[in-house]
Design a protein around this nucleic acid. Structure first.
Length: 353
DNA sequence: ACTATATAGCAGGCCGGGCT
DNA sequence: AGCCCGGCCTGCTATATAGT
């Protein structure tokens, strides 16, 4: 409903191109658990898509649902019955709509649609009253989210998230800036839990545990964001905070370009990470991309390709990599100085045949 | 020095996957 | 089907920086 026209066009085009195959058939018709899927990946090289649904996929889903409703003459209420009721198993609804989205397993589409079409979905900010209702409901019922949900008027999953992220430890939770001491403790805890145990400092962190070890005064998300946005960069840069440079922007544009996607919601930002350019987290790169994109006038109605085209020319020059022209005398170390020559051309990415 | 713009830092809603 | 978990994504605001 809210997608711009160019997304709709892409969704339609991609639907036409779809090639039926054994695997596609399998994904769209069999209710396979994640374990089963993993097994098939091993045994017969099944490929399937994970992660957030892209704008194109969501459009394909909406189109498929509209088509189903039209063909079967299904009313609004009937549709909700099909999605949430018991008779869903008899209809071909789930298989039909899954077929419209290449490489997504049935179960993933099922979960996605059930969340999106839920009558209590996406209500925005929680009020103090809702928080109180939630707290009381959990006190009465325990963490049985399906029973808690109707008492609060929010989806079970949302109640659970709100509870664990904001209700638990609320009385001791700190907000606002981190003290020097907190920062050091967090760094200490993270390094202890990862490198000192031979694990990856960027991937193998259990934030719930970290929060616990911070004494519950900072939540798991606070810890995670603090680490990925600030502390990890500083640690990797020998204690100095790196600065985003024009060269970094240049590299980012070319990396995004090399992904060869039709829309930026298709990008898995983790795959942009590069050992030679490792100061920036996937999260910060994505945010950089967003701000770059928004700096273009009228970007809302432009396709990804149009935006790429403009950014490519705008950032075409490697802008004075050593920053000799800069005024500040004690210039902080630039994040990407490690990269010597020809940083943007970057033909070492995944070769697309 | 004054103002416009960019960025850092943070909060929190929202999501998908895996297990039972 | 329900539960738990790790993580993604975006908006807001105070502050820093660039432009005049």
């Amino acid at each position: 409903m809210k997608n711009p026209k160019h997304i709709k066009a892409l969704a339609a085009r991609s639907a036409e191109q779809q090639i039926p195959s054994d695997h596609a058939q399998l994904l769209a018709t069999k209710w396979m658990s994640t374990t089963k899927l993993a097994e098939l990946v091993q045994t017969e090289g099944l490929v399937y898509k994970k992660g957030k649904f892209s704008a194109i996929e969501e459009q394909q889903l909406r189109d498929a649902i509209d088509k189903y409703r039209e063909e079967k003459q299904v009313t609004e209420e009937d549709l909700l019955d099909i999605i949430f009721g018991k008779k869903s198993k008899e209809s071909t609804f789930w298989s039909d709509i899954t077929s419209a989205i290449p490489q997504r397993p049935l179960i993933a589409v099922y979960h996605h649609v059930r969340r999106h079409f839920h009558p209590m979905a996406q209500q925005g900010k929680w009020t103090a009253e809702e928080d109180a209702l939630l707290k009381q409901a959990v006190a009465d019922l325990g963490q049985q989210w399906e029973k808690v949900s109707p008492r609060v008027g929010r989806m079970s999953a949302d109640c659970r998230d709100r509870y664990r992220n904001h209700i638990v430890n609320r009385d001791i939770r700190l907000t606002g800036g981190w003290s020097r001491d907190e920062e050091e403790r967090l760094t200490q805890i993270v390094t202890e839990m990862t490198v000192q145990q031979g694990k990856n400092i960027d991937n193998d962190i259990f934030w719930g545990k970290v929060s616990e070890r911070m004494g519950g005064t900072r939540g798991r998300q606070q810890c995670r964001i603090k680490w990925t946005d600030t502390l990890s960069k500083t640690v990797k840069n020998d204690g100095q905070r790196p600065r985003w440079s024009p060269l970094d922007a240049f590299i980012l544009v070319h990396k995004v370009d090399s992904m060869n996607v039709m829309d930026d919601t298709e990008i898995d930002w983790k795959t942009l990470l590069d050992p030679d350019w490792n100061l920036w987290s996937a999260h910060s790169l994505q945010r950089r991309w967003l701000t770059m994109k928004r700096s273009i006038k009228g970007y809302e109605n432009m396709s990804h390709l149009d935006i790429m085209e403009i950014l490519r020319t705008k950032k075409a020059q490697v802008p004075d990599p050593l920053g000799t022209g800069r005024k500040r005398k004690d210039r902080k170390v630039m994040s990407s100085e490690a990269i010597e020559e020809d940083p943007g051309v970057d033909d070492d990415h995944i070769d697309d045949s």
